[in-house]
Each structure stands twice: as structure tokens, then as C-alpha cells.
């Protein structure tokens, strides 16, 4: 398997894996989305809330804030505290604000981390308050999996795409430019009396150029042995950490399968 990074900017990682089975790449994608554990606020104890937002709305907004840290925590389901939550599987954050002026915005950066977990982004507004309004709360963050709640999903966009193949028959092509016009991603260009592809990986395989071409000179197909994985983190882990974590989870699953097969009686 040959890996080449296409781009790694704006929080989005795009890499091509050559000679990788599409089912394998999809397994990695699904593990990133559903089974990589990250922390998120699970319980909120509100001591005082005189803001115009209900307690429930504030708790919901807190839950969606991406959190960093928490590597030392264990999953609550696997913790010996019987899913009650204990210092081994929970980390506490507190927030205590009294607005001094009108239209005062409380940002996620105001939350004080009592444990290892802290907000990944300090500029998320939690509430807007007028002078004199108070918000005092204690939030308990837990590790969790994306399959249980979207707040534990470490990625926003995460996709696998096959390698597009764009074949242009120069004998049939009359350079009418219909395909250049039709392409929604604008990846075709005329250069030296021929149609050329400027960025192959931006092709969405929509085949609009095929339909637009009167002499049928352009043909779109794909190669499913080479696929691109697009990962866009929400901030808890970096994109490369996510891919590595997904590989670890997969290995761990294989180990579990191996040990359970080995523990079967000989007769099997």
C-alpha cells in the first residue's frame, strides 16, 4: 500500500492509498466516525442560571463543544464504577460567570478545567447575557464513541472516494468546450488544442461532461483499487492522530477475535 498526502490544510486531510482495497478504506472511515473514543460533556449540574436560555439548551450547547485531552480516562462502560462516573472515567469543567455589561457573550474559553480535559476551541459562544445575569455550573466530561452520540463523533466530513479516470479521445474531440462549461468542479481546461484535466482528484464522477459531449469523446470511469480518504476533524484529535487511532482500534478488534477463536475448544 502506497500512501500519498494530497492536501492537509484548513483542518482537512486528504490522502490517496494506492492498491488499497476499498472495503478496507471504508472500514477505516467507519471506525473514525463511530469508534474512536473522544471526550465530550455528558452531565451538567447547573447551580445558577438567570440567563434567557433554558438549562437544557445550555447543557446541549456544552455537550457539542469539542474537548481535548482525556487520554488518561477510561471509557465509562469499561470502568469499574458501574457506569456511575468516577474520577477515573470523568473529568470536571466548571463555569462561573456574572455579566458585567449588556450583550455579554460567554465563550467556551471561560470554562475552567479541573481535570485533564479542556475545550479544543476557546471561541464558541455558550450564551449571551445582560448585566447582572449569572451562570454557574459544573460539567462532567466522559469519553464516548460516535455510534452512541454525535457529540462523540471526532469528524464532521469523512469520506472515501475512488480514483477517477478521465479518458479523452483526441481523435473524436472537436474542442467545442461543452465539457469545460458543464463540469461543476471546473477541472477541465483547453491547452495546446487539447482538453486537459487540471485536478483529477476534484472530479466527483458526475459524468455531466460525458452527456454534454456531442461526439462522445470523453469517458469517465474509476479505479477502485486506488482510493482517497478525506478526514475533517472537529478539533479533539488532529487528522493524522485520528487515522492512527482508527488503525489501533481495528488492530484491537482483530486481537479480540484472535483470542476468542483461540479460547474455543479443540473440536472446533
Amino acid at each position: 500500500m502506497d500512501v500519498k498526502v494530497l492536501s492537509n490544510s484548513d483542518g482537512q486531510l486528504k490522502f490517496v492509498a494506492k492498491d488499497a482495497d476499498p472495503t478496507f478504506m471504508n472500514a477505516i472511515r467507519r471506525i473514525i466516525m463511530a469508534e474512536v473514543a473522544i471526550p465530550a460533556i455528558e452531565k451538567v449540574y447547573i447551580a445558577e442560571n438567570t440567563s434567557v436560555l433554558y438549562d437544557d439548551i445550555i447543557a446541549h450547547r456544552l455537550g457539542l463543544i469539542p474537548l481535548k485531552g482525556g487520554e488518561i480516562l477510561t471509557l465509562t462502560e469499561k470502568c469499574d464504577c458501574d457506569k456511575k462516573g468516577c474520577p477515573k472515567c470523568e473529568s470536571i469543567l466548571t463555569l462561573e460567570v456574572e455579566a458585567a455589561e449588556d450583550n455579554f457573550l460567554v465563550y467556551s474559553g471561560r470554562m475552567k478545567a479541573e481535570g485533564s480535559v479542556f475545550p479544543a476551541n476557546n471561541n464558541i459562544p455558550i450564551a449571551e447575557m445582560n448585566a447582572g445575569q449569572k451562570l454557574t455550573l459544573e460539567a462532567h466530561a466522559r469519553l464516548g464513541l460516535g455510534k452512541n452520540h454525535a457529540k462523540w463523533q471526532p469528524v464532521s466530513a469523512c469520506a472515501v472516494k475512488y480514483e477517477p479516470i478521465i479518458e479523452i479521445d483526441s481523435k473524436k474531440c472537436d474542442l467545442c468546450g461543452a465539457c469545460i462549461e458543464e463540469c461543476p468542479k471546473k477541472i477541465l481546461k483547453e491547452k495546446d488544442n487539447a482538453i486537459v484535466v487540471t485536478s483529477l482528484w476534484d472530479c466527483t464522477l458526475c459524468k455531466l461532461c460525458e452527456e454534454a459531449c456531442p461526439p462522445a469523446a470523453i469517458k469517465i470511469s474509476y479505479d477502485d483499487r486506488n482510493s482517497v480518504l478525506i478526514v475533517e476533524t472537529t478539533g479533539s484529535l488532529t487528522n493524522d492522530e485520528l487515522v492512527l487511532a482508527a488503525c489501533d482500534v481495528m488492530l484491537q478488534k482483530c486481537e479480540e477475535l484472535k483470542s476468542s477463536i483461540k479460547s474455543l475448544p479443540e473440536a472446533f
Binding site: 436560555l53 450547547r61 469539542p66 476551541n121 464558541i124 459562544p125 463523533q153 472537529t234 478539533g235
Partner: peptide, 20 residues
């Protein structure tokens, strides 16, 4: 009401960009 923390559809964190 107030800008949602994340995009309803894809889950991208958007609230931090609202002020700008």
C-alpha cells in the same frame, strides 16, 4: 435564537466563526 454550536447536517463546529 443563538448561533448553533455545530452545523445541523455535517457537524462542523461553526459557532466560533459567527462573530467574524
Amino acid at each position: 435564537m443563538i448561533i448553533p454550536v455545530r452545523c445541523f447536517t455535517c457537524g462542523k463546529v461553526i459557532a466560533d466563526k459567527w462573530d467574524e
